[in-house]
């Protein structure tokens, strides 16, 4: 059962990765990448990493991919490629929407199902709420310096991005 689920999700992940590469439209590529992020989140849930799965959905699919979509739409790449039949685009859009919807359902199903909380990591620490306690203990004891360095990196990246993108 679990093997079948992993194989199904694996095929889904590889298929979405190929669709990212072979989509003609850049916006479609970005949307398939969102689907790939969701599939990876389901795989993380099946490995008993609830917190990382939530982060994957919020940070990757929610923040980074929306950022990339904004950048794509700012760059106005539409004139470089032919429009094609709008009715065909509508059909592909519907298929994409339905696929994303079902991926979301799979995420919720795996998150609520018993297999999400079973496995070798389901010790007392995990049973309280995911593995957030483990990560927090690690971050604020051994991983404190890397954690602070990551915050410095993010600040530097944001300042650098604003400076580069500034009109001069």
């Amino acid at each position: 059962m679990e093997t079948m689920a992993i194989l199904f999700l694996g095929v889904l992940a590889i298929a979405t990765a190929f669709l990212v590469i072979f989509s003609k439209n850049t916006v479609h590529s970005a949307l398939w990448m969102v689907g790939n992020c969701f599939v990876l989140a389901v795989l993380f849930l099946m490995l008993n990493s609830q917190f990382i799965a939530i982060l994957q959905v919020i940070v990757y699919a929610g923040a980074i991919m929306m950022f990339i979509l904004y950048a794509i739409m700012m760059l106005n790449l539409r004139r470089e490629q032919d429009e094609g039949d709008p009715r065909k685009n509508l059909v592909t859009g519907r298929i994409l929407l339905v696929l994303l919807f079902f991926t979301g359902l799979v995420i919720m199903g795996v998150g609520f199902s018993p297999i999400a909380l079973k496995g070798r990591m389901a010790s007392q620490a995990v049973a309280q709420f995911g593995e957030v306690n483990l990560i927090a203990d690690y971050i604020f004891s051994e991983g404190l310096i890397p954690f602070e360095l990551v915050s410095v990196l993010l600040t530097a990246a944001v300042v650098g991005a604003v400076y580069i993108a500034k009109k001069n």
Binding site: L55, I64, P146, L154, V158
Partner: peptide, 22 residues
């Protein structure tokens, strides 16, 4: 798990700087 969080932060920084460059 901590490394995964670091990789996500680096991916965010990379997205910000890379898209600004583009």
């Amino acid at each position: 798990l901590f490394m995964v969080m670091c990789v996500m932060a680096v991916a965010g920084a990379e997205a910000a700087v890379g898209l600004a460059i583009f």
